[in-house]
């Protein structure tokens, strides 16, 4: 119930921010649309801890600045590799076991790895991530990384 209410509030805020008009007709149309989407989501049974993870919001907002810093750092490294006339790449595939337990945590971890230039998650399951790294160092950097620990903390099971 809490999830449904918060989804409705988020959707209505989204409508208002996108439209930018404050006439009664448009405001009520927005409320109707938000309600319709909430009803559809409720019928599809996708509004739960996994589909609308409100328990993660506070910790995820703290996680993003760190992630952006990591993206900037590795983007700089990959840019230097691309500009280098010798193209010093050494692509590797590494496998490792992530420590997250929920699907949301796994998805967050896999997306964070893919978002960082230099590493791409090729396969993501509960037991094993298969990561393609542009260089040996980048590939080795994802195994038992700080990102893994931070995402586990964001996930909130420990």
């Amino acid at each position: 119930m809490l999830h449904l209410a918060s989804l409705g509030v988020v959707l209505y805020a989204f409508w208002i921010l996108l439209s930018g008009y404050f006439e009664p007709f448009l405001l009520s149309a927005g409320a109707g649309s938000a309600l319709a989407v909430v009803l559809l989501a409720w019928r599809m049974k996708i509004v739960d801890r996994e589909g609308h993870p409100i328990q993660m919001i506070a910790s995820v907002v703290l996680y993003w600045p760190w992630l952006i810093k990591e993206i900037a750092k590795s983007a700089w490294d990959v840019s230097k590799i691309i500009i280098d006339p010798n193209l010093p790449i050494s692509p590797v595939l590494v496998r490792f076991k992530p420590t997250q337990r929920s699907q949301v945590g796994l998805a967050t971890h896999a997306n964070s790895i893919t978002l960082t230039p230099g590493t791409i998650t090729v396969e993501a399951t509960q037991d094993e991530f298969l990561v393609h790294g542009l260089t040996r160092a980048a590939g080795a950097g994802v195994i038992d990384s700080e990102m893994d620990r931070r995402v586990s903390k964001v996930e909130g099971y420990r």
Binding site: A72, A75, V78, I82, I83, P117, V122
Partner: peptide, 26 residues
Amino acid sequence: VIGAIGLVRMPDFYTRMHAASITDTI
């Protein structure tokens, strides 16, 4: 532009994705 250059320069599909992710993120 660097990401797009990488997209042209890199030798195979998987390495090209790394170059494309520069354009997409930073």
